[in-house]
């Protein structure tokens, strides 16, 4: 039953060009465009090519989904996907055809696939930028310094989980209030609130309770851990405190909790009107 719902939702999503573009392609497209322009500017104004670590560039590209600004696009996609059936009053058309849990999980699956595709595109955009830079002489490619594959996979999974948490928040609000705009606004407030809260705390000092309260902090610590970056000079992410493990647990916990809430809310919801 879930497979049927996913197939149907994927079919519908493929025919919603606006949602696909603005939700999942706009960010990689904008990043690529900006980076190509930057490379061209560097080629015109710098005499020496900038050395570029291909591995770091790709990992850095994939990590861009951590930006609160870019997350607005993903939140908009989620809001459209989860609130569309209220807006178009189409729940009455599809709810009798499958289980309610499957219908909501199918939306999560398609949103998750869109996010994964977007992350891949961000990685590809970084590759294209490097290739373009080397071609026009703005960049001198250097082989990856240190491990490349594990940081890439870790950054990818962290970014994906962070976007799924964002989608989960949007889904819960969209279902509870039957409105896309309310869900989008809540997601933005949540993102900005986390950004402000993170500015008030040093990630390496934050107690574990903050990880649970701030998925953005969990993602930040996890991303730093998988890429081997330091949270502060001399303080490696995850060093000795199990921060990375807790961060991963919190992120996955948020994802499951919000997914469960969305399904539970929809299961209990009366569709006397959509």
């Amino acid at each position: 039953m879930l497979a049927d719902a996913i197939a149907a939702e994927a079919f519908r999503a493929r025919r919603s060009g606006g949602v696909l573009f603005w939700g999942f392609i706009a960010v990689p497209f904008a990043v690529l465009t900006f980076n190509l322009m930057l490379s061209s500017w560097i080629a015109l104004h710098m005499r020496m090519p900038v050395p570029l670590d291909l591995g770091r560039q790709v990992v850095g590209g994939v990590a861009l989904t951590g930006s609160a600004f870019f997350q607005v696009f993903y939140a908009a996609a989620a809001a459209t996907m989860f609130a569309a059936d209220y807006r178009w009053e189409t729940w009455r058309l599809i709810t009798p055809r499958n289980s309610r849990a499957s219908l909501i999980l199918a939306r999560f699956a398609v949103y998750g696939a869109g996010c994964a595709g977007s992350l891949v595109l961000l990685g590809l955009a970084a590759l294209v930028q490097c290739a373009y830079g080397a071609l026009i002489g703005s960049a001198a490619l250097v082989p990856p310094q240190g491990p490349f594959l594990l940081p890439l996979i870790g950054t990818f999974l962290t970014g994906w989980c962070e976007l799924m948490v964002l989608g989960g928040i949007v889904a819960v609000i969209a279902i509870a209030f039957r409105a896309a705009l309310g869900a989008l606004m809540t997601a933005m407030v949540f993102a900005v609130g986390q950004w402000v809260a993170m500015a008030m705390v040093h990630p390496w000092e934050a107690p574990f309770s903050w990880y649970a309260a701030l998925p953005r902090l969990s993602a930040y610590v996890l991303r730093a851990f998988v890429t081997g970056q330091e949270l502060a000079p001399g303080i490696a992410a995850g060093a000795g405190q199990g921060q990375a493990g807790v961060a991963a647990l919190c992120l996955v916990g948020w994802m499951l909790l919000l997914g469960g809430c969305a399904v539970g809310l929809f299961q209990a919801q009366e569709l006397a009107r959509e």
């Binding site: 149907a8 079919f11 178009w88 599809i94 499958n98």
Partner: peptide, 27 residues
Amino acid sequence: GAMIETPRYYPTLTAAETLMMLARTSG
């Protein structure tokens, strides 16, 4: 099979696509 009140559809889909999507949802 049901048609409740004024039927509503996804505006981006054609008639055939609407039926295809609904059929897939129904398995």
